[in-house]
Design a binder for these strands. Structure first.
Lengths: 243, 243
DNA sequence: CGCCTCATTGATCGTTGTCAAGCCGGGTGG
DNA sequence: CCACCCGGCTTGACAACGATCAATGAGGCG
């Protein structure tokens, strides 16, 4: 690579990150500030993904993890009875693929549910970077632990709640996460995934989801128009979900 | 500490580990082989815990993680509707407390469900040791990721299965884990926790668990006498749980 | 326009939760 | 030693939530 090309690459990185919605809270720009040129090889920034694009597939070796910068990624796997189960939705700022670290194989597919953008991080080089910089290593540890904790929390509030509350809770959580990444969100937000995926995430049939959505709209706790939604009465919604 | 006392401590560690059932696969003796004397301060080995003993409580700061060397530890928290939920059972070789790493607070109680034994690992010192030794750091990372993966797997096979299959699957899994840590297990094994805890783990009422246990015994898939159990027909059991 | 997938709505059935009563074993105190 | 109690466990009757089956509507795309 000529020095002119290297220079160009470094410029690209700066440019690409400057336009990124995440750049204020982005761990890449925070944790690797001075070494932008050195990170060109580790991080491939802001790949555009049309909906339906596979980021990786089940049972393939872990080569990269991904930081979502826009849109939404779902991870899915099979249940014991052969149905699809959506493991989680990853929004801006979330790290996709860390569930593969323990055995080096991705346990699930990762698929964009809407027009999305990710930064790809070479895992091997990230690990060697962690070996050199302990604070980066503990940051990755905290990320993985955070992922585990999120799974635990999901399971705890899913348990025992009826479908009605689970659905409402999903929308409250989604709204919180969307506003966290994009503070100038209006009163309505766009649903970045299909209802089928939500049903598979909440572990209920599409029929049950549909019925409960209708009920929530009737009760004035939720508004749904095509692919946009709003939560007119957040406080009442939270009391219903018992938080 | 006088050199005589240090010598004694080192002797104690060796002695205590030599008698441990885990010592062949123990990560402490494997990963910290040459530095036994240096590890005396980090690891407090083989504390005995009578049933009901709290290892730590919810919302307390993370000071130590624990490696189970005998018995069984349950972790529990509250569901959204205020009921108890058993998060998991930790048997010999399992690491308890890693779900607290992300925010430094234990999200759940950890309680011995039977006579147990743990090695206590000072978390701060473990982290600084990880900073010095990257391969230890990546080992801890893999442990956390493994924990996350196990949670994912739990959720995936819990999803969609009826109580009947979930119960059977629990006993298959339990038997596998018990034999893994103690290869000379007879044809029956001891249940290291109460049925109430199993019900709270499998997210069903004690009544449902009891009914399904009775059904499994009637079908010849499970044998239960007081606190011992056996799986007479593993292959049929596996086919029923669709593995 | 026809095809296809997703989404909705209705009718019915089954598993599980709920409420209630009774059983068993261990521990305590008279 | 026995009576008593208490928590854990079991069993039964019933109701309810959600799954299943089925039909229809809505939107995207060739």
């Amino acid at each position: 690579m000529s020095s002119a090309t290297a220079q160009l690459a470094a410029m690209d990185v700066v440019d690409v990150c400057a336009n990124c919605k995440q750049n204020r809270d982005c761990f890449l720009s925070q944790r690797m500030p001075a070494e932008t040129s050195g990170c060109v090889g580790i991080v491939q920034r802001r790949q555009a993904l049309p909906p339906g694009t596979y980021l990786f597939r089940r049972n393939t070796p872990l080569r990269s993890i991904y930081l979502v910068s826009a849109g939404s990624i779902k991870t899915q796997r099979d249940t014991a009875d052969g149905e699809l189960l959506v493991n989680g939705f990853y929004l801006g700022g979330d790290l996709v693929g860390i569930d593969a670290i323990s055995d080096g194989l991705h346990p699930c597919d990762a698929i964009a549910t809407t027009d999305s953008e990710v930064c790809r991080i070479d895992f091997t080089r990230l690990m060697s970077e962690c070996a050199r910089r302990p604070e980066l290593g503990s940051w990755v540890m905290a990320q993985i632990s955070h992922y585990a904790k999120r799974r635990d929390d999901d399971l705890a509030w899913t348990a025992g709640l009826h479908a009605h509350s689970r659905v409402l809770r999903f929308f409250l959580d989604l709204h919180d996460r969307l506003t966290a990444q994009n503070d100038d969100l209006g009163d309505t937000a766009q649903l970045p995934m299909r209802k089928q995926d939500i049903a598979r995430y909440l572990q209920m049939t599409p029929e049950t989801l549909s019925r409960n959505l209708a009920a929530l709209c009737r009760d004035g706790l939720l508004e749904l128009h095509s692919d946009r939604f709003a939560l007119p009465d957040r406080s009442r919604a939270r009391s219903v979900t018992q938080i």
